[in-house]
């Protein structure tokens, strides 16, 4: 945490974020901020511009314009500093399947230049917490999806990042595992790690403290799940999402 961020408690701050690819506006003046320790849901249909924005916040892509700070650092000039202070996990890629559990810990810890002793200490603590210390030398490929997912999350926060980005993290696992996974997320947030999560599944949105919904490159709504349901007079986040997306399609037809 540096001074700029310390002042207002905002771990992510985006003002008028714009990203253009040629004539196509992928992110259209996004303005939002995320507080330390918050679980922030970043929702939108396929192609709404979520991945583009997330890549910018992770320091992997430069915005066309706008003022964006992540963990107190500027995305234009300090992206390397940002990368050291964030963690990332996606369902598509998370762990090396041909490596063992411990080798994955060592590999990812090494990337963040953690000392071996520290990696070992945290890995043992995390595996102990999950009750799977005996799987330390097991190859990832032979583990069930639920355990892999919990390991992937543990490894994403191994270096104790300020923010962890979760890109559609929970597909395909059973409901008990999914709840255990969210419990891990709540625990991480309680320890001060900010969680930024994208998902297609609206019931997952209900776990977030606040949610933004993107439609066609713009943030159409941003609030707590409770308040969004009230505003859109909807019984569930799924209904909120459908109302927003449909409304937009109707406008396009006119």
């Amino acid at each position: 945490m540096n001074e700029a961020e310390e002042k207002n408690g905002k771990v992510i701050e985006a003002v008028e974020l714009v990203k253009r690819f040629g004539n196509f506006v992928a992110n259209d003046r996004l303005t939002f901020s995320v507080q330390r320790g918050e679980i922030f849901g970043f929702l939108g249909a396929n192609g709404a511009g979520k991945t583009t924005a997330m890549r910018i916040l992770c320091g992997l892509s430069k915005p066309t314009s706008g003022k964006i700070r992540v963990a107190g650092y500027d995305v234009y000039t300090q992206s390397e500093k940002i990368k050291q202070r964030i963690g990332y996990m996606s369902q598509r890629f998370s762990l090396y399947e041909d490596l063992t559990v411990w080798e994955n810990f060592r590999f990812f810890g090494g990337i963040y230049r953690m000392k071996s002793a520290l990696i070992r200490e945290r890995a043992d603590r995390m595996l102990g917490r999950l009750g799977i210390l005996e799987l330390r030398d097991t190859v990832i490929a032979s583990l069930p999806p639920g355990i892999r997912q919990k390991l992937a999350f543990s490894i994403a926060i191994l270096h104790e990042p300020e923010i962890v980005f979760l890109d559609e993290p929970t597909g395909g696992v059973d409901p008990v595992t999914r709840r255990q996974f969210w419990e891990m997320i709540y625990e991480a947030a309680a320890s001060g790690i900010t969680v930024f999560v994208t998902t297609h599944y609206m019931d997952e949105a209900e776990y977030c403290n606040r949610i933004s919904i993107m439609v066609d490159g713009k943030i159409e709504a941003l609030d707590t799940p409770e308040q969004l349901k009230k505003t859109y007079n909807a019984g569930s986040m799924n209904d909120v999402f459908l109302k927003l997306a449909r409304r937009n399609e109707e406008q396009k037809k006119e």
């Binding site: 249909a45 799924n238 459908l242 997306a245």
Partner: peptide
């Protein structure tokens, strides 16, 4: 419907 957004799922 795996990996498909809420509108397409509906």
């Amino acid at each position: 419907t795996t990996g498909v957004d809420a509108v397409s799922r509906r």
